[in-house]
Amino acid sequence: MSLLLLLPTLALVILLAGVLLWSLRSTRKAPLDRICAVDLEETGQRHATHCPQIRQALDARDFSYLTASGGPKLTRRIRRERRYVVKDYLVALRGDFDHLLRLARAIALLSPEVVAVHELERFRLTLQFHWRCRVIGLRLLFGAATLPQVSDASDLVSHLAVRLEAALKELGERAALAVEMASSLDRRNMNTV
């Protein structure tokens, strides 16, 4: 009985220890404060450029042709393989979006002041975004989403990715310019010492 009273506290301490160890674990990424103009320019490489191929992979006419020429067995196999391709595509798009978030965090880190509301909102939206992406990904993996839905998701994400690409390019250019400005100021300060 007495031990039962101790269990909630013990569980809480173990949970907190786990979270602390997880947060202390080092990441393989380069630290954000060492992000440079080149990293920012790399954000121009987007997976959205593969969108036409993904659309082709989901085209109903493609499957009709496959059924007519190779039979339903082949169609089923290819349909399954293409689901995995689309899933990987969505994962890659999520990676693109993560890159944008990383850029936003780098800007916050190098900024002389940040606004709590913006930072907390981004944190909340990021959690929401990852959760929704994961749910859609799982539905794709287990075939719970039908092909039109997959196509819809792909359309949506690729459309956003194109918008994102434009935004990233612009943000990248502006941020790179700002970093360059800050670096040149820094160099000037160093020269005067």
Binding site: I107, L110, V114, R122, L125, A167, L171, A178, V179, A182
Partner: peptide, 23 residues
């Protein structure tokens, strides 16, 4: 190398807006 103050104020709301639209 600290960024100019304006960079944060210009870019962060934009990033948040895009994330909100996506969500």
């Amino acid at each position: 190398a600290v960024l100019p103050r304006d960079v944060y104020y210009a870019l962060t709301p934009e990033v948040n807006l895009r994330l909100r639209v996506l969500n």
